[in-house]
Design a protein around this nucleic acid. Structure first.
Length: 524
RNA sequence: GGCGUCGUAGCCAAAUGGCUAAGGCAACGGAUUGCAAAUCCGUCAUUUACCGGUUCGAGUCCGGUCGACGCCUCCA
């Protein structure tokens, strides 16, 4: 039984979709005006794992991630670069999608763009005016927050609490908290026709409209970063529920934000504003503090990070803490996680050398029910203790994931799993003995591991080797060196054997002598 | 100022109020090895920032103190 933390109730709830067996999931995607940074990958990777796990659990999931391609920031960027807004949007959308593809986030069903829904946005806005929840003012259309009594229910605040806050010029608005559904166009700005004159959509309306068009008036999961809880998601609720008269989403899920420990300054929050107002005397200090990574300042482009780290390394890192917690970004942390990952890769090679099968080609169960069946395999029962252990590990993993997608707990189980299978190889001496019975048991155990790893989108395919590092000569040269070294060892000429190994190590190549006179090499 | 989150070992990080507080990284022993590497075995939190309370029982619930952070303004 899946349990999900719902921001609306601030508790974990049993997951029961609106329509049995089907799940509609909407994640707020980016405003495409700058290249994405690592913070933009947090949500997609987490919800990718959530979708995979839900699918594995037997749900048919439709996942929508929107692209907001019309916005003040896009207009500013377009002006700054002297190219059309649509060109900026196309370029950054491509960057975003490239990054998702690199990260293996390929489970998103629809990427709707706001500009493809202008007519629906106009209709939606007109509905809100007709129902008395919005009003026109000098070509703009505003949502009248006073008319929606539940305003603030998601972020747990009331209009009274906020009074004295909020701001900007309120001349055109009834209340400073009213927000724009439609903005009139200034000369030269991209615009569309509407009953209120030429203009463009406000920020929040596109999500209400596209989620409704694609997933229905009430869908199951609405996700996004914690920073979107207010005002974005609050406003989406106000718009959608006022228009449709029913709950917008059953479960609201918010992921914690990526924090940068020092390289990116603190950019949000009251301190900065105060610092600015008081002559920035705290500014320098504040910029040294930890703070969330923001695209409005300095975070390096994700595509550059991909040059330094394997996508799987980044994915493993993102899944190594619970999704609702903030996660600190640092290259050291990424490297540390990478060391842990290597143990898995080594095991996959070991598995292949012992059974002759590639881990990546194992056909594992696609659903939990299939897996329940598969784990009963008699090949495993030949080794009762091992069988019991493997089944316990699988149960522990599923238990962790059922409890609000505890990927960190699940990854912990993976390391126990790794030890179990390595130990099994030692105990059965599979590296030096032919033992089909033990090989079968190991294959079953490893296939179950693959089944679980795939629910997180991990270990789907071999990590790409750096093509430039391996030209056709490397393989035969390594074979030559290893043969020479073997001959030296046979003659007890360990000095030569060690020199070969040491000098290769200096070149970044590690030799490992395995039982049976086998020598394996790996490079960094 | 309002609302909220968090504080678990040297670092990272799990844990429906209930058995010995997972796991990773680092470190240190041992097995194995010609020596290594890898792997396995073992050590590494009498205790969850601090103080008090509720309870048969608290990392977990309540109150307070200290500290870190988020939102209230563009954000994933």
């Amino acid at each position: 039984m899946l349990r999900v933390f719902n921001t609306l109730s601030r508790t974990k709830e049993e997951f029961q979709p609106v329509t049995p067996g089907k799940v509609g999931m909407y994640l707020c995607g980016p405003t495409v005006y700058k290249p994405s940074h690592i913070g933009h990958m947090v949500g997609p990777v987490i919800f990718d794992a959530i979708k995979r796990y839900m699918t594995y659990s037997g749900y048919e999931v439709t996942w929508v991630v929107n692209i907001t391609d019309v916005d003040d920031k896009l207009i500013a960027e377009s002006n700054a670069r002297g190219i059309p807004m649509s060109a900026v949007a196309d370029e950054m959308t491509q960057d975003y999608k490239n990054n998702l593809a690199a990260m293996g986030v390929d489970t998103i069903n629809v990427f709707p763009k706001a500009t493809d829904y202008i007519q629906q946005i106009v209709d939606f806005t007109a509905d809100l005016i007709a129902k008395g929840y919005a009003y026109e003012s000098e070509g703009d259309v505003y949502y009248d927050v006073e008319k929606f009594p539940e305003y603030g229910k998601l972020s747990n605040r009331t209009l009274d609490q906020m009074s004295g806050e909020g701001g900007g010029t309120a001349e055109r608005k009834h209340s400073p908290f009213d927000f724009a559904l439609w903005k009139s166009a200034k000369p030269g700005e991209p615009s569309w026709d509407s009953p209120w004159g030429k203009g463009r959509p406000g920020w929040h309306i596109e999500c209400s409209v596209m989620s409704c068009c694609l997933l229905g008036e009430t869908f199951d999961v609405h996700g996004g970063g914690l920073d979107l809880q207010f005002p974005h998601h609050e406003n989406e609720i106000a718009q959608s529920e006022a228009r449709n008269g029913k709950p917008m989403a059953k479960y609201w899920m918010h992921n914690g934000l990526m924090q940068a420990s020092n390289e990116v300054g603190k950019v949000g929050g009251r301190k900065t504003r105060e610092a600015q107002e008081s002559g920035a005397k705290e500014g320098d200090l504040a910029s040294q503090e930890a703070g969330k990574i923001s695209k409005s300042k300095g975070a390096s482009a994700f595509r550059d990070l991909l040059k330094k780290f394997q996508p799987e390394n980044i994915r493993f890192f993102l899944l190594s803490s619970h999704y609702r917690r903030p996660i600190d970004y640092s290259e050291e942390r990424l490297q540390e996680v990478g060391k842990g990952l290597e143990g898995f890769y080594r095991y996959f090679k070991r598995f292949e050398s012992v059974t002759g099968q590639s881990f990546y080609s194992l056909e594992s169960a696609k659903t939990r029910l299939e897996g329940d069946d598969y784990e009963k395999s008699e090949a495993l029962d030949v080794y009762p203790e091992f069988a019991k252990h493997i089944r316990e590990l699988r149960a522990r993993f599923l238990e962790a994931m059922d409890d609000d997608f505890n990927t960190a707990g699940g990854l912990g189980v993976f390391f126990d799993y790794l030890r179990a299978v390595n130990k099994f190889i030692e105990e059965t001496q599979l590296e030096t003995k032919q033992d089909p019975t033990a090989q079968n048991a190991l294959t079953v155990a490893t296939t179950i591991f693959r089944e679980l790893a795939l629910t997180l989108g991990l270990f789907r395919a071999p990590v790409e080797e750096d093509a430039s590092a391996n030209d056709a000569l490397v393989e035969p040269l390594m074979t030559l060196l290893i043969d020479l070294r073997r001959a030296a060892k046979k003659n007890k000429d360990f000095a030569t054997a060690d020199e070969i190994r040491n000098r290769l190590k200096e070149l970044g190549v590690t030799l490992e002598d395995r039982p049976g006179g086998v020598c394996v090499w790996t490079r960094e």
